[in-house]
């Protein structure tokens, strides 16, 4: 089953700036892998629930208690760019 992949759309969703040559190479490789992966479709899974936690437990919560945050100097020390306590990025093109 040949699989049709709109690779530039996928790369855009994944925020990866790839050139045409890279896109074409990944498209081909993904096609091969997906053809193998598509074997899952041969199994009858009618009425089968997806797996949750292997140990099947539920309700893991924490109490509503404040714990110390990180020092801001520590936080910003790893930032590629920061100013007046803020992280700085180039302007956004569009809203979320």
């Amino acid at each position: 089953m040949p699989i049709d992949i709109d690779i530039s759309h996928v790369a855009r969703l994944a925020r990866l700036a790839l050139d045409d040559e890279q896109l074409e190479r990944y498209r081909r490789q993904l096609g091969v892998i997906l053809e193998h992966a598509a074997r899952v479709q041969a199994l009858d899974t009618e009425g089968v629930e997806p797996t949750g936690h292997p140990l099947g437990f539920t309700n893991a919560f924490r109490d509503d208690q404040v714990r110390p945050s990180l020092e801001r100097d520590v936080v910003l020390a790893e930032a590629p760019d920061h100013r007046d306590g803020y992280f700085v990025v180039p302007p956004a093109l569009e809203g979320p």
Binding site: R15, L16, A17, E78, A79, P80, D81, F87, V89, P90, P91, A92, L93, E94
Partner: peptide
């Protein structure tokens, strides 16, 4: 994504920088 830590490759917009 180059915003808070790790590598950042410059770009004109946030989107371009991230990508």
């Amino acid at each position: 994504d180059g915003v808070r830590y790790g590598l950042r490759v410059p770009g004109a917009t946030t989107e371009e920088m991230m990508a």
